[in-house]
Simulated assay, not measured.
Amino acid sequence: MNAEREVRARIEQGLVHTESQAAFRNHLRRTDEIFAYNHTPPGEASRRRELLEAILGSVGARTVLLPPFHAGFGSNVHIGDDFFGNVNLTFVDDVDIRIGHGVMIAPGVTLTTTGHPVHPDRRVDFARFSEPIVIEDKVWIGSNVVVLPGVRIGRGSVIGAGSVVSRDIPPMVVALGAPCRVLRPITDDDLTTRA
């Protein structure tokens, strides 16, 4: 039990740990439920909702998550109200991914809490480290964005398609690129424009 406690502490601190060391967490994986969700007919909305509640750590009202989606665990993902997630959304959720209210995510986005050591000798047994991701309310994430471990995206911000978000993004900005950088603030002028 002490070994398990030590590995939990390493995970919580974002320190390197291995697949074997973290195996005690495998019961938290929702792979069968994710498979069932991804194969549930579109007309079975109540069954999809039931499965989503069984998969995710928490899920708000009026949530749309278009299949297929993928998750390492599923149980470490927490989604607020009025969420829209388009197809091929991937959650690498070895630790928490927290998504606020009114968030929209376009197709092909990856939210990954986990990375690996650079030196190959440190990657034995799939060694990794994990840091939580936070996406605040009313964020819009464009197609094919990758959000890396430990990132927080501030309320109301827009992340441009194809971006790689490796650092925190402040509230109410448009940010894009690889690496993702703030392009400009979002202002009241944006209430009257398309983009």
Rank of each mutant, 00 (worst) to 15 (best):
R123F: 10
G85K: 01
P185M: 04
E53N: 11
D188Y: 01
D32V: 08
N88P: 01
E50V: 09
T31S: 13
M1R: 10
D32I: 03
C180K: 09
T112V: 08
I133C: 01
L52R: 07
H39W: 07
V59F: 04
T90Y: 06
R30L: 00
T187H: 07
V164R: 02
R30S: 00
R181E: 15
I105E: 06
D125P: 05
A54Q: 15
V124D: 14
F84S: 12
A3H: 14
S157P: 04
H119S: 15
T192N: 08
D94H: 13
M172Q: 09
D125M: 10
V147C: 01
I105H: 02
V92A: 10
R167W: 02
G108A: 00
T187V: 08
R194A: 13
R122P: 07
E50C: 13
L111M: 14
A161M: 08
H17K: 07
E136I: 08
A9Q: 13
A9S: 12
E33T: 05
V145Q: 00
D190V: 04
E4N: 08
L52P: 00
P179A: 07
P41T: 11
A61I: 08
S20P: 04
M1L: 11
A54H: 09
T193Y: 02
I99T: 05
I55L: 00
K138P: 00
V87M: 14
